[in-house]
């Protein structure tokens, strides 16, 4: 997409400069061909291909990154309030809710149920997935998967008041073996 955009940009600006400064440039092309060629035949195939590719890619992301999931995703809940995120783990028996840090296992698709009870927030971990809004009165779902253990920064990306800039959180990805222990340790604190 980037390379294509650079090419198209250079093409249009180049044509503008050429038609202005190079005498008789492009005069052999009839006005009709200019308009039909540049206005219809140039953009349409690109847009069609791009739209279908984006549709396919969107479906892929909605599944949570992997192929068709063989195992059911691990469900966690993210609840936004002014101005922090609280996470709970309905699929893990006995896990206590956490604030500011979401613990997930690696190598498994995680389905996050995103909600809010005050204003609109948006849940975003740039390195793991796209964003989804937390809208009072609605629940939204986002699937993501971390392949490597580590800390992934997250932010609220919908303006939600004066604490918006500080409404950051961390996604901590643990290997499958360490995961339950890490959650238990949170509960012990």
């Amino acid at each position: 997409m980037l390379a294509g955009s650079i090419l198209l940009f250079l093409l249009v600006v180049g044509l503008f400069l050429a038609t202005v400064f190079v005498p008789r440039f492009g005069r052999s092309i009839s006005p009709r061909n200019w308009i039909i060629g540049g206005g219809i035949f140039l953009p349409l195939p690109i847009l069609l291909a791009l739209t279908f590719y984006a549709l396919w890619q969107g479906e892929y992301l909605l599944r949570g990154g992997g192929g068709f999931p063989l195992q059911s995703p691990l469900r966690v809940e993210a609840h936004g309030t002014m101005w922090q995120w609280r996470f709970s783990y309905p699929d893990i028996r006995g896990a206590t809710p956490t604030s500011g840090t979401l613990h997930i296992p690696t190598g498994r698709t995680v389905e996050i149920r995103v909600s809010s009870s005050d204003v609109i927030h948006s849940f975003w971990v740039p390195r793991l997935a796209g964003k989804i809004d937390a809208i009072p009165g609605h629940t939204n779902y986002l699937r993501l998967r971390a392949d490597r253990p580590g800390r992934y920064g997250g932010v609220c990306s919908e303006y939600c008041g004066t604490g918006h800039a500080g409404m950051r959180f961390v996604v901590q990805a643990h290997t499958q073996e360490d995961y339950l222990a890490a959650l238990a340790e949170e509960g012990g604190r």
Binding site: V12, T19, G26, I29, W34, I35, G37, G38, G39, I40
Partner: peptide
Amino acid sequence: IQIFAWLATIS
């Protein structure tokens, strides 16, 4: 279409 109509006009 508009952009190429303008380019055609200049050319």
